[in-house]
Design a protein around this nucleic acid. Structure first.
Lengths: 229, 229
DNA sequence: ATATTTTAGCGTAAAAAAGACATTTTGTGT
DNA sequence: ACACAAAATGTCTTTTTTACGCTAAAATAT
């Protein structure tokens, strides 16, 4: 960074971040309630203007942090939405991102402010009316997440460090919105060499304890080359 | 479109379009030579500002048309590049697209103008020094094109309406930059039910004539759901 | 006309991956 | 000790992918 920027807004470009988590056995997305028009009182995905001197990634990370206090998370650029009519008042182009996080990691670091009156998790499959084109953005995020899931086990980001295979499968089922076969699921993961089998078990409540696993550093799938490293 | 826009530039957002074709048995990309600083005299991918009242897609289509006179082509949004330092003078965010076209369809409709002094096809695997981050953009386009190719036969856009299986295979090999097995390639396509077998043959020059095929309206792959319709 | 050259066109077998499917194990709570 | 609930496990079938070499057809050269 050798150039100096003035923090003057010369364009209206925002970034919006779709943040998925699993909570109460449901796939949820983080929404904020808007304090002002347009769409006053409506829910929206968190977003904000990209500063003149920051990368788009940095802006998305910043917004993620502002809303959830979470850092160091996998954030992927999704798509840039630029219909001139998407914002009722002016031309705003938004570069959308999506992220998957463990809801435990999060303290919704929110103090009501000028822009937002509430922050809340909402079930993805049962969303309220949303501001702007945010419904479309969430739907597309979900589609992309499902596609990613075929190739790389990004679901691990939804789970605690140590998890059971059943929990892993549940997260897949929630994202894909369909049941998977238990034996095939386990077989696939155990033979993929990306899990570390721990000598620990859930001592949870009742029932038979389950073995815990953790993700070995995610390694790349030699065949397809699709995992990230 | 019920809202009126002033054509005033309030932001610096551009779109750049990576246009691939096959020509002289090589995969090529369309580049323009810049008339002015920054990067005066350097090659760049064609691009331009997004107008205040047009969608990003429309801007990309417009630029494609301005440079190649081609319309009705598959154009896909690639990624938005927004490093504050990518443009040496000011903050310019660019939303990149890529397209595949048949070079025969194209009359490079170019009259030297204020911005561009030349328009030319360049071999993808042997590019000159490029302006801005355009090398990165082309590389990413290529990566994405290869990924797409796994699921949907977008290569058909590089071919004339009637083509031989050998030509189709060549286009795959050029994009993937590797040799493919002839029999497996043919088998895969013939059993995919996306080709229409014509009763016509190349009467070209020498050698045994080859059967011509055309793409049936691209239908979706029922299994993977990945083809576009 | 015959031989030569060049590309088109074809099929099978082995290996790997994906999908279907039901019973036994193990700890907890009563 | 028994009932309960979730965990764990293996085989067979189908589909997909990969590897691999010879004959057919036309054009050209002799």
């Amino acid at each position: 960074m050798s150039r100096a920027f003035k923090e003057t807004k010369t364009h209206e470009v925002t970034t919006d971040v779709v943040i998925f988590t699993i909570k109460d056995d449901k796939l949820k997305v983080l929404l904020v309630k808007r304090a002002h028009e347009p769409f006053k009182g409506k829910w929206a995905i968190p977003g904000g203007f990209i500063r003149i001197s920051e990368t788009i990634d940095a802006a998305a990370i910043r917004i993620l942090k502002e809303k959830t206090n979470v850092q160091n998370i996998y954030l992927e650029q999704l798509y840039t939405f630029g219909d001139p009519l998407r914002h009722p008042d002016s031309r705003v182009i938004t570069c959308a991102y999506f992220a998957l996080i463990r809801s435990d990691d999060i303290v919704l670091s929110f103090e009501p402010n000028q822009e937002i009156t509430e922050v809340q998790w909402h079930p993805v499959y049962n969303l309220p009316k949303l501001a702007f084109d945010h419904k479309e953005i969430i739907e597309y995020s979900l589609k992309r997440t499902r596609e990613r899931l075929e190739f790389c086990p990004i679901a691990f980001q939804l789970l605690p460090e140590k998890f059971t295979l059943t929990e892993l499968q549940k997260s897949y089922e929630l994202i894909l919105a369909k049941k998977l076969d238990k034996r095939n699921f386990r077989k696939k993961f155990l033979s993929a060499n990306i899990l570390k089998e721990l000598n620990e078990f859930t001592k949870s409540g009742s029932k038979r304890p389950a073995r815990l696993y953790s993700f070995d550093k995610i390694t790349l799938d030699s065949k397809r080359g699709h995992f990230f490293s």
